[in-house]
Amino acid sequence: MKKRRNREDWIMDITIYTLSLIILFVTVYPFYYVFMLSFNEGIDASMGAIYWFPRKFTLGNYSEFFTDWKWLRALGITAARTVLGTILGIWFTTLVAYGISFKGLIGKKYYMAFIIICMYFSGGIIPYYMVLKSLHLIDSFFVYIIPGMLNLFYITIGRTFFEGIPESLRESAKIDGAGELRIFTSIIMPISKPFMATLALFVGVGHWNNWYDSTFFIKDKMLRTLPYLLMEIVNQFQSTSSASNAAAYRMTTGTTSLSIQLAAMVISVVPIIFIYPFLQKYFVTGMMVGAVKE
């Protein structure tokens, strides 16, 4: 039988739903506002009084990024580094975290102490640059990939995750004649989808939004990434030295520095928004259903 609801229950439900809707609106509306203004003519948007829909719809804010081949090339480089860097980052980080999770690993405490120290203390940008230079990674595409193949913070998280997997899974596989690599690829990785999906999201977002390495370690303009070019064009429109050129540009195209920045924000955020729903279902912890329990 359903419990009869009294007036206090109705008041509490109305209060909770009202507060939830207010919080939802406050959270979502800024993103919607940026997205909506990115499709409005920049000069018209500077007049204000636009709240829900574009007043003068235009794609000019976006066409400025893609009328030049350098934007398409930068987009391709960013996509390539994101895909390749995410795959290699997941593989090596997960492999090391799995190895350190072994209970009988000799020197396990020393490995973890070394990882923790390296995670909290850095040698600085100059020694890091010298290391990359000695490895011939400066001004190379692989400077985007190799340094990020192993993440110490995610190793500590992965170690805790793998320690929760029953030891009997590995033992039963060894009885059937499987080696450690076969156990890892055929048993451990399939049941580690929640951890690997979370790792893929964080590593992928880091690669997609990273402009730091392109600024300091890349001189070849052919290897510039999309976040770097977005930052560059935003700074170009904000610089006082090009104020006259920017004014003439706004008169001919109808764009402003603000509209370019809004378009840049949308370009950076939308790909992650589309990828996130495909990974969200793996964020649950019920991956051990059907496995051997201890």
Rank of each mutant, 00 (worst) to 15 (best):
V292L: 12
W91L: 13
L135E: 06
M265L: 12
G290N: 14
S268G: 01
L95S: 13
G60C: 05
K103G: 07
I50H: 15
R4P: 13
I275T: 07
V289C: 04
S38A: 12
R55K: 14
I188D: 00
I106H: 10
F35T: 15
V266H: 11
R159P: 03
C118E: 02
Q236A: 07
L37F: 08
I267D: 02
T94C: 15
S20I: 09
F39M: 13
F121I: 13
I175V: 13
L19M: 13
Q236Y: 10
D213A: 03
E163K: 07
G99T: 03
I125K: 08
M231V: 06
F25V: 08
I146Y: 00
I267S: 02
L72P: 01
F66K: 12
A246I: 11
F92M: 11
M251P: 00
S134M: 15
W69Q: 11
S101F: 14
I155V: 15
T225V: 13
T256L: 13
A113M: 15
V28R: 01
F66M: 14
V205K: 05
L59S: 06
S172H: 06
A264W: 01
P127A: 10
V284N: 10
F153R: 10
Y98I: 03
L201Y: 02
F57K: 07
F237E: 00
T255S: 11
S241Q: 05
N245H: 03
E163R: 07
T58M: 05
I157A: 06
T27P: 07
S241W: 02
E167C: 06
L84K: 09
F184V: 03
M251R: 03
L72S: 00
I90R: 09
V131Q: 13
G85K: 14
R81L: 08
R55Y: 11
F274H: 14
F121Q: 07
T82F: 04
G60S: 13
K174P: 05
I145S: 02
V34H: 00
K3S: 08
G99P: 01
K56D: 15
Q236N: 08
P277D: 03
D139S: 12
M231T: 00
I43Q: 07
